[in-house]
């Protein structure tokens, strides 16, 4: 559905446009129909640039991208007709009413029954009662909801959401999140840039961690496992050194850590090993209070990836500085 191959964007910067800035460096992605994809990365990582390339707003420097078989750089008008975008800031016509704002876009997208579409989304996003008020008088949350309505008005096949809940109060953020859930249930393909990792974890089938290039790409749970493995905690009433030694001796146990009466065991397949470990501990006289899996947050995965990328970049810079000195 969305496919990119070695997608690159290099900006010329500086007064004489002689310096270059690599915003996106060889992005390879494949997002299938109906998938909700989370694009995570720090500020300045190149997320918005990627969205702009995929929505045919700016041209890639090299590489290729396709949306539903339409080629970026070739079928640009058709791509724009088939995608919806919620930009970083709502970008509304503040002196015009919500209805007027939507009508302009309904006309530009050539929607066959604009009235019906406008009414549908104004009602769906709780804006109906204030539809005749100027958008400039709206709260931040209402503006964002109106921008979401605008992005959805032409029923796009793919929806790009750039930081959909940033800066919203909890209630407005919830309305937007519920709406994303609704779109997910409708089977829409959603490409969501976000800093909000809880949001990504909640909505996204897969996430990509991105900083100029794709650092990791998988389901949130799979990323956690890749980076930290799976950890099971055995809460015991009492522990002895024999218990620890017996568990550690098992070939499938990758690591063991004891914190007071808790044993933290790193395993590849807890489903297979938990009964074995439980039996050994009981044999050694342990009273097991309960067993649980420790889940690393997506935030930790994200921070780990970004930090390791930053340190490798710093290393590269230092090496090149040293080479230049030499």
């Amino acid at each position: 559905m969305i496919k990119t191959q070695d997608l690159r964007k290099i900006f010329k910067i500086g007064k004489k446009q002689k310096e270059t800035l690599v915003a996106v460096d060889g992005l390879n992605l494949e997002i299938s129909e109906g998938e909700v994809f989370g694009f995570l990365g720090p500020n300045g990582a190149g997320k918005t640039t990627t969205v702009r390339m995929l929505t045919s707003l700016i041209r890639p420097s090299s590489g290729s991208a396709e949306i539903y078989g339409l080629k970026v750089g070739v079928d640009d008008t058709e791509i724009r007709r088939n995608v919806g975008i919620l930009t970083e800031s709502p970008g509304l016509y503040e002196r015009l009413s919500a209805e007027q704002n939507l009508r302009i876009f309904a006309e530009l997208y050539d929607i066959p029954d604009p009235e019906k579409a406008i009414n549908k989304y104004l009602s769906m996003l709780d804006l109906w009662d204030r539809r005749m008020d100027a958008a400039g008088t709206y709260s931040k949350g209402m503006r964002q909801k109106l921008a979401v309505a605008r992005a959805m008005l032409h029923e796009p096949k793919v929806l790009f959401l750039d930081e959909p809940t940033t800066g919203l109060d909890p209630e407005a953020a919830k309305t937007v999140r519920d709406f994303i859930d609704e779109l997910k249930h409708q089977g829409r393909t959603i490409f969501m840039c976000t800093h909000n990792l809880d949001e990504a974890e909640r909505h996204c089938d897969r996430v990509g961690i991105f900083k100029q290039r794709l650092l990791a790409l998988d389901k949130p749970s799979a990323l956690r496992e890749q980076l930290f493995g799976r950890k099971v905690v055995f809460h015991l009433a009492n522990t002895t050194p024999e218990m620890c030694a017996a568990v550690q001796a098992l070939p499938d146990v990758k690591a063991l850590e004891q914190i007071e009466n808790k044993l933290l065991v790193s395993l590849d397949e807890p489903e297979k090993m938990n009964p074995v470990i439980t039996r050994i501990l009981v044999d050694k006289g342990a009273d097991i209070l309960f067993i649980g899996e420790i889940k690393q947050s997506l935030e930790r995965v994200y921070l780990e990836m970004i930090r390791s990328e930053e340190s490798s970049q710093t290393k590269k810079i230092n090496q090149s500085v040293e080479r230049n000195r030499a």
């Binding site: 929505t55 707003l57 058709e78 995608v83 800031s89 970008g91 509304l92 530009l108 605008r150």
Partner: peptide, 14 residues
């Protein structure tokens, strides 16, 4: 100033 050009540019308008 209202950043309303980007959504406009994202439409099929040439």
């Amino acid at each position: 100033t209202t950043r309303s050009l980007e959504p406009l540019l994202a439409t099929p308008i040439t």
